[in-house]
Amino acid sequence: MTLSIVARDALSGELGAATATAGPAVGALVIHGQSGVGAIATQAFTNPLFGPDGLTGLAEGQSAQAVLESLLAQDPERQRRQLILLDAGGGSAHWTGGECGGWCGSLSGEGFAVAGNLLAGDTVLPAMCDAFTRQSGQPLAERLLAALQAGQRAGGDRRGIRSAALKVWQHRRYAQVDLRVDWSADPLTQLDEVLVQVRAPDYADFFAQLPGREAE
């Protein structure tokens, strides 16, 4: 019931994650990240503990693949889970359990991974990958949003999309971009509108002046 992407910008070192689903408040449980550590999306029959536990493993220097295998080994319900991870170096890993619902799958490319379940069909994830790759000259947040929009145009969640979220981490100990639309008839349009406001000078100048102790 969800489509998600995690990614790294090779030039800036930013890490990001974005997600959309037919249910409410997808940003509360699905996407997780930490500056200089990694990004995670946990979905299908979501295990929210994969977020903090996975980030702990990544912070210890484990690869995305090693963390994924460790998380799954400890979870007796792993066949109902879907999980994508990205480490600070851009290494990715993905898992789709055999009991995830409807059309489901996961893919990874250089510096990113995508996943979806209860999708309209097998064109959704390739469309997300293509959109993310083609937007290579844009900031990471805009690329993540473009991927979600492309997934929606390709059919997206077969039940429709009612909530969406996008986060980007760079040097600060909190997210550089942290956007959520928790319930809407058109959450991706609203997410786009919020991103425009976040980029506007008034907010951007305010944010730049906030204490921003670098992540350790």
Rank of each mutant, 00 (worst) to 15 (best):
L3G: 04
L3W: 14
S4F: 00
V6M: 08
G13L: 12
L15M: 09
G16I: 12
A18G: 07
A20P: 07
T21L: 09
A25N: 12
V26Y: 02
G27V: 06
G33T: 07
G38C: 08
A39L: 04
A41W: 07
Q43F: 01
N47A: 13
G51M: 08
G51C: 09
G51I: 06
G51N: 07
P52Q: 09
D53M: 10
G54L: 10
G54R: 14
G54T: 11
A59V: 06
A59M: 11
V67K: 04
L68Y: 01
L68F: 04
S70N: 14
S70M: 13
A73P: 12
A73N: 13
P76Y: 10
P76S: 13
E77G: 13
Q79V: 08
Q82T: 03
L83S: 09
I84N: 00
D87P: 00
A88H: 10
A88W: 05
A88F: 04
A88M: 04
G91K: 05
A93K: 07
H94T: 05
H94P: 00
G101H: 13
G101A: 14
G102Y: 04
W103L: 08
V114L: 09
N117W: 00
L119Y: 02
A120M: 10
D122K: 12
T123R: 15
V124H: 01
L125S: 05
L125W: 00
P126A: 03
M128W: 01
D130T: 15
T133F: 01
Q138R: 14
P139Q: 11
A141T: 11
R143T: 05
R143A: 02
A147S: 15
L148Q: 07
L148S: 04
A154Y: 00
G156P: 00
D157N: 03
R159T: 02
I161A: 04
R162L: 02
A165W: 02
K167G: 07
V168F: 07
R172Q: 15
R173M: 13
V177N: 03
D178F: 08
W183I: 11
W183R: 08
D186F: 05
L188I: 03
T189G: 15
Q190R: 15
D192Q: 14
R199V: 06
R199W: 09
Y203D: 03
F207R: 15
G212D: 14
G212Y: 10
R213G: 13
E216R: 14
